[in-house]
Design a protein around this nucleic acid. Sequence first.
DNA 1: CCAGAATTACACTGATCTGTGAACCACCCA
DNA 2: TGGGTGGTTCACAGATCAGTGTAATTCTGG
Lengths: 197, 197
Amino acid sequence: MPEERSRTPAGQRILAAAEELFYERGITAVGVDLIAEHSGLTKRTLYNQFGSKDHLVTAYLTERDQRWRTLVRDTVDACADPVEAVTAPFAALRTWGRTNTRGCAFVNALAELPDPAHPAHRVAADQKHWLLDLFRELATAAGCAHPAPLATRLLVLHEGALATQPLALDTLAESTDLARGLVRASLRTGGRDGTRR
Amino acid sequence: MPEERSRTPAGQRILAAAEELFYERGITAVGVDLIAEHSGLTKRTLYNQFGSKDHLVTAYLTERDQRWRTLVRDTVDACADPVEAVTAPFAALRTWGRTNTRGCAFVNALAELPDPAHPAHRVAADQKHWLLDLFRELATAAGCAHPAPLATRLLVLHEGALATQPLALDTLAESTDLARGLVRASLRTGGRDGTRR
DNA sequence: CCAGAATTACACTGATCTGTGAACCACCCA
DNA sequence: TGGGTGGTTCACAGATCAGTGTAATTCTGG
C-alpha cells in the first residue's frame, strides 16, 4: 500500500471515483469492479495502488477529511471578526452541503463498519475531536472565559444540522442562528450563561 | 409477506434476532443465514415469514420505530408539568441510549440504503417528522406562542445528541440543558427570543 | 534507445450472498 | 382419523464479491 505521496495519476482517479461512489451509494454497496469501471481504470491497477478495499476505504475517508478540514480552516481564516469566526464552521457547512447531501460521510461509514478496529473509526473520531478542539480554540480566541462547554454545545448543533440535512427543513439556518446566540450569550456573561453546575 | 398481525412466534424470534444484528453490525453486513442461526430458526422459515430480506429490513425498522415512539410517549405522559414535558424526549433518549449505543438506527439505515424508493426511507423520514410534530404540539401545550421554530431547534439538538453519542462526550446532558434553556426563553418572551426574521 | 515502472487484458479462484424446490415432520383441531 | 398449518432439512441455483496470476503493453526519465 503506497503512501499518498507516491500516489499515481491513475491512483488519484480511482480514489476520486471511489469517493463519489462510496459517499453516494454506501461503502458495502459499492464493489471494486464498479469503482474501476467508473474511473476508467482497471481493477488490477486499483489493487496495485491500494492493496485492498479496506485500504481504499481508509484513503477515501482520509482524503475527504482533509478536504473538509481545509474548507473549514479557510472559512475560519476569512473571518476578520474573531467572534464571527467561532461560528464559521457553520458557514462552511452551508458550502459543503451544497454538494454533499447524504449527511456525514463518517457517521455513515461507522454505520457500515461496526468493527472498532477498522481504521475508519479512528479517522471519524479524530475528525469530530478536531472540530471540538477548533471550537474551543476559537471560543478562547474570541474572549470566552469558559470555552469547553460552549464548544461541546456548538458541536452538538453542528452534528444536528448535519444529521437533519436530508430532511430538507432548513435546520442549518436554525442551528447557525442558535450557535451565534450561544456565542453572544457566552461573551456577555463571561461564559457562564445557561451552563450547568 | 404476512401482515404483522399474523406474525408467528417463530417470526417474532427471527425479527428479534434481526433487530439486534442489523443494529449492532449493519444491515448489509448481516446475511439472512446469520439471522437464522442467531434466532435458532431456519432460513426457510425466515423467507416463509418475511418473503425477502428487504421486507425483513422494513419490519425491523418499523418495529424499532414503534418501540421508540412508545418510550417517548410514555416519558412525555409521565410529566405532570407541561413545560417539562417539552424536553421529555431528551429524557427518553437517555433511557434509550443505555441499550442503543450505535447511534440512530434510521440514519444508519439510510446510509446503507441510498435508494430513495426503499421503504426504509419513508419509515425514517416519518419518524423524524413525527418527533418534530410532537415537539411542536408540546411547545404549544406549554404555552409557547411560536412553537414551530422552537420545535425545529429542539429537533436539531435531539439529532445532534444522537449523532455525537458514540463520541462518549456527555453531549446528551449538554443538549438537554440547552433544550430546557430554549424552552424557558421561548416562554418568557412569547416564543420570539433569538429567532430570526 | 533502453530500463524500469505503471497499466492493461483477461481468465480465474474461492467465498459469500439472496433466494428456491421439494420432501418430510409435528402438532392441533375438527 | 385426517387435513392443514408451520417448521425443518438439505441441496442447490445464480449472482456477486474481493482478490490473484500472468503475460503483454504503454509510459517515462535518463
